[in-house]
Simulated scan of single mutants.
Amino acid sequence: MRTRLPVWAPTGLVLLIAAAGMVRVLMEHWRQGGVLLGGALLVAATLRVALPPDEVGLLAIRSRVLDVVCYVVPGVVLILLAITITRGQLTLA
């Protein structure tokens, strides 16, 4: 018998990765934080595709295809921006 995931588990995983990304950004490692934030969106897209509708929780907002597109496009853009920007810092001083 297969055990069911708690309904909050997929969302919790994505939020945990996003929180790690925000911590890295606040520690002034914004490239690493940006990659983690983009990765959180890609994990959300993967979970949205892989899990059945009754186990996906709050990651299901619209139709499956539209949700995946809305997770993948910003995730890839965020990762590409974080990787390709080579100068500058995210500090005020």
Rank of each mutant, 00 (worst) to 15 (best):
V72N: 03
A93R: 13
V68I: 14
V73N: 05
A50F: 04
V65F: 11
V76T: 11
L5M: 12
G33K: 04
R87E: 13
G88M: 11
M1K: 12
G88V: 13
G75P: 02
A50L: 15
T84C: 03
A82R: 03
R4N: 10
T11S: 13
P6M: 08
T91F: 09
G88T: 12
T91V: 15
T86F: 04
R4C: 04
M22N: 02
I61E: 07
L16V: 03
G88W: 07
G34A: 09
I17E: 01
V69D: 05
W8Q: 12
Y71C: 03
R31T: 06
E55F: 02
D54I: 06
I17V: 15
L16D: 00
V25S: 00
P52K: 13
V23D: 01
A18E: 08
I79H: 07
L13V: 15
R48L: 08
A44W: 02
L41C: 14
T46K: 01
L66P: 00
P74D: 10
L80Y: 03
R2H: 13
L26S: 08
L58A: 15
A82E: 03
A50M: 15
V73C: 06
L78I: 14
A18R: 01
V56C: 05
A9D: 00
I17M: 11
T46Y: 10
T11L: 13
L37P: 00
V72M: 07
V76N: 04
L80K: 02
P52A: 12
G21T: 00
G75S: 11
R62E: 08
V76D: 03
V35Q: 08
G38N: 06
V72Y: 03
V65P: 01
R24Q: 13
L66E: 12
P10Y: 09
Y71M: 05
L80F: 03
L37I: 02
P10Q: 12
R31C: 05
I79L: 10
A60V: 05
M22S: 02
I79E: 04
T3Q: 10
Y71D: 01
A44N: 07
M27Y: 02
A18V: 04
T3L: 14
E28T: 13
V25Y: 00
R4L: 13
V14G: 01
V69E: 08
V49N: 08
E55H: 06
V73Q: 06
S63C: 07
L42R: 11
G33T: 06
I85M: 12
V73E: 03
R48C: 09
G38P: 05
V49K: 13
L16N: 00
V49I: 15
T3K: 14
G57L: 05
L47R: 08
R64L: 13
Y71W: 07
W30D: 02
A44R: 06
Y71P: 00
W30E: 04
G39P: 02
L15K: 01
G21F: 00
Y71K: 03
